[in-house]
Structures are given as structure tokens and as C-alpha cells.
Nucleic acid binder design. Structure first.
Lengths: 242, 242
DNA sequence: CGCAAATATTTCGCATACAAAAATATTTTA
DNA sequence: TAAAATATTTTTGTATGCGAAATATTTGCG
């Protein structure tokens, strides 16, 4: 089993994601998964007593978890009223990806400046590794997403900017993933994404931050348009307003 | 009393900052102020029991407030260990302003695209207003900061991007302000800032997002260098490591 | 006297309990 | 019958209490 299997599963053991120690940590991960995968429907109300019972803990740690869910934009809270799971929308997707393009572009520029040669080489061999395993297990989109996440993750860490890392890996990661998962972003764009990744890391290896920035923004822009087209298509059941 | 006096004082009544309704909201504002102004020293430990007693409430709403303080990067929490006020550093300042440059640059590009003519005109007359009152009350740096905050705030809102607005106005605003306040960023750079603001809003008025982006990044870059020089100077007492 | 182990104390995390506000259901009235 | 007003129930916000983990202190030993 390739090691990046674990990346999406047990939450990417790494500088940023420390393993859950408290009960609030654990329930946070569970609810995050449930929301991202749509098991808790977008727009649905979050009942504290119900979830507390459902996950078998008191409301105290649950509320801690809710605070962090709000932080990563998976729920919206209104004082004295309660929390609701966010609804997905084209406008939201565009806003989110505008931000992502800019931020990951910045990450590239900084990575070109701050990554060591060793780190860069590591990412390059990682890409080759992904490519080979992807060829072996053709069609398994799961691996593609893991590989994609892994690549972006490395570049972001390479920026060495704590604010940027926290933002992309902790605050925006899950809502981005929610869009991808709920709109069924499996399948295509696989080999093309690999090529784009390669071009980006090469630019970084050449210490060409400007180019890496440009390529990354283009890469993410393509990804956005790819998701955008899925909104009006059979894959996605439009939110039933209520 | 000019209306923007109230902006820094009672927390900028606006789309983003809803007035405190719960007890946690109120204590959050108080502690935010205390940290930003250095009344609670950088690096010092946050004792929940102590603060609960100090602000006369139970630990429940206090912990809610602490969660949000962590969200805006004013404290750092370690599970089972507690929270500490962040320490200021040159590296932190640089990382923060790298992010700010990029984000507010993006805000400018989007503002040039999405702001209505009316909104733009409003900002322009706001600048004139600031300029006149600034001339009257020469040297009062307080007004300058309020005016600066006000300008940036308008442009950010003008982007119409909810993620970007939340990020800059809620999550990064206070830590940016902490650097400025604790390094004694009163004084100079006043008239120059006004000119730069004017140039930016004019670019937006001309729907020249690229130029507005560039000017804003330059504007913030200048601000960063201005603060950076203060780190090694008498104004700031270097953190006493401990 | 210095350092390490053991104890004591503080502090955090979580559960329970209560109060206030919202939401819902019910009754009353036009 | 429909709308307004009131009552009931649910849910959120806050307070208190207890157990576990971490920190501080003391004790014992080299």
C-alpha cells in the first residue's frame, strides 16, 4: 500500500496536522469527514444535543469542535440560533478558487525561494512515484486525489510561511475538498494534472518563482473550471431549498 | 467627532463585525484589545482560571473566546498545556505582510471589477474628508490609523469575496494591528499614505485592476519596511526570552 | 551541592446542571 | 377562518464540579 494512501485517510501526519489527542479533536475529524462527504447534508441544521448523543460525548467538547468547523468554513453559526452546514454554490466556488489561485501562487513564489534542493528533489521523485502507481492502478481516482493533495501540500510547506501554511492546510483544505468530493471530481484530468505538477516543480527547481506562480494559478484555474462544469450536470443534485 | 473615530473604538460596526451579543463576544473584544495593546505581554501564559476571575465570568464563555483568539493568531494553544500570547518577531512580520500584500492586491483587482461607481465615489470623498480633518488635527496619529484602516476596509469589502473579506477583516486584522501598535507606528508616512491611497482608488475607478494591485502591494510593502526598521530601535523593548 | 525521582498542586478537558433566548405549538380573538 | 397573542418546548449560552494531565515543588540519593 503506497504511503500516500494514508494521507487522506488518517489526516496527513505532518508538521501541520498533529494527531488527535483530545476528545474534541477526534469528534472534529469525524464530523469534518461527514460534512465533506455529504453524510450531513449541506444547509442542514446542526443540533448540539443530537450530535452529542450521536458521537457519545457531552456538549462541551462538541462546541469546541463546532468552533473549529466554523473556522474551516464548513458550518456557519448564528448567536443564540445555532449552526448550519454550508451550502455549495457556484459563487462560493469561484470566490474560494480566486483565493486559492492567489495563495498557492504565492506559495510557489516563496517555495522557489525557500525550498532546499533536497526538498525539491524529494517532490520530484514523489511525482514519478505517483505516476508509476497511477499507471498500475488505472482509473482509481482515489489515488489521483491523494497524489494531488500530496503535491500541493509539499509546495505549500515549502513556502515556509506559517500563516500561509495554516491558511491553506487547515482553514481552506476541507471546504475545497468538500466541493471536489460532493461534485464527484473523480476521473479525468489525471495525466494532464501530472504534467502540470511536473512543470511547476521544475520551475521551482530552476528558482523561477514567477513562472511557478503563473503555472500554479493556471493549474488551479483549470481545476476550478473543471469543477464548475459539474454544477449543472447530472452528478450533482441541486440543493433542495427549504 | 468624525465618524471614523468610532471605527477603531467600537469595533467598526459593519457587514463583518456584528456587535457583541453573548458574554463570550464581549470578553473576546476586551482580551483582543488587551493583547493588541500589550497589556497582556507577548509570550505570557494565559491562565483560564485567572482570566475567568479577572473578567468575572465562568470558564465556558472564556474558552469560547480563547478559541477565537487562536483563530486570529493572537494566542497559541497546546492541548492539555494551555495558551500563550504570540511573540512578535521580524520573521513573523515578514510572513504576515507577504500574505497581506498578496491578499490586498487581490482585493484591489476584484474591487476594480466589482465595486459600483457609487461605492468608489464614496471612498474618494472619504479620502478627501480624512485629508481635511488630518490637516486640522496635525500630528494626531490616531486619526491617521483610523483613516488607513477605513480605506483598506472599504477596498476589501469592495472585492465582494466573502472568504477574502473574512480573512483580512476578521483573522488577520488584529495581529497586523498588534504589530503596528506595539512597535509604536504613530507618526510619519502620513501624507505619503494618503497619496498612495488616492492613487489606488483612482486605479480602481479606472477599472485598472492590475495597476491597483501593483500599487497596493507597493503600499503595503512600504508599510512593512517602515515597521521593520522599528524592531531594532529604542521604541521597542526586545522580547525578554524566558 | 547538584541532579533525579517522587509527591503535591495547579490547570486543562469534559460532564452535568441551570438559565435565558428561540422556535414551535396552542389558544384566543377579530 | 385567519391572524395575533400567549404558552410550551426545545436549544443555546453559562455556571459548577470532577478526573486526568501537566507543571511546580519537595525529597532523596549520588
Amino acid at each position: 500500500m503506497p504511503h500516500y494512501h494514508a494521507i487522506v485517510d488518517n489526516q496527513m501526519q505532518s508538521p501541520t496536522w498533529k494527531d488527535p489527542v483530545t476528545a474534541a479533536d477526534r469528534v472534529l475529524l469525524e464530523i469534518q469527514r461527514a460534512i465533506v462527504e455529504g453524510q450531513i447534508a449541506p444547509g442542514s441544521k446542526i443540533s448540539e444535543p443530537e450530535l452529542a448523543k450521536r458521537y457519545d460525548l457531552s456538549r462541551a467538547p462538541l462546541r469546541e469542535a463546532l468552533a473549529r468547523l466554523e473556522r474551516c468554513h464548513l458550518i456557519e453559526r448564528i448567536p443564540n440560533a445555532g449552526a448550519r452546514v454550508v451550502k455549495l454554490s457556484v459563487a462560493g466556488l469561484v470566490s474560494l478558487y480566486q483565493l486559492r489561485e492567489t495563495l498557492e501562487g504565492l506559495a510557489c513564489r516563496l517555495a522557489a525561494e525557500h525550498m532546499t534542493d533536497a526538498e525539491i528533489a524529494q517532490v520530484q521523485q514523489l511525482l514519478d512515484q505517483h505516476l508509476s502507481t497511477q499507471r498500475v492502478r488505472e482509473g482509481e481516482s482515489y489515488y489521483q486525489e491523494a497524489g494531488d493533495v500530496d503535491f500541493h501540500y509539499r509546495v505549500i510547506l515549502g513556502s515556509k510561511n506559517p500563516y500561509l501554511i495554516n491558511l491553506l492546510c487547515d482553514e481552506l483544505y476541507f471546504i475545497v475538498r468538500m466541493y471536489r468530493v460532493q461534485l464527484g471530481m473523480n476521473g479525468p484530468r489525471v495525466s494532464r494534472a501530472f504534467d502540470e505538477h511536473k512543470a511547476i516543480i521544475n520551475a521551482i527547481a530552476n528558482r523561477d518563482g514567477e513562472l511557478a506562480d503563473l503555472l500554479m494559478r493556471r493549474h488551479i484555474g483549470a481545476s476550478r473550471r473543471n469543477i464548475e462544469t459539474h454544477f449543472k450536470q447530472p452528478h450533482f443534485k441541486q440543493p433542495h431549498f427549504k
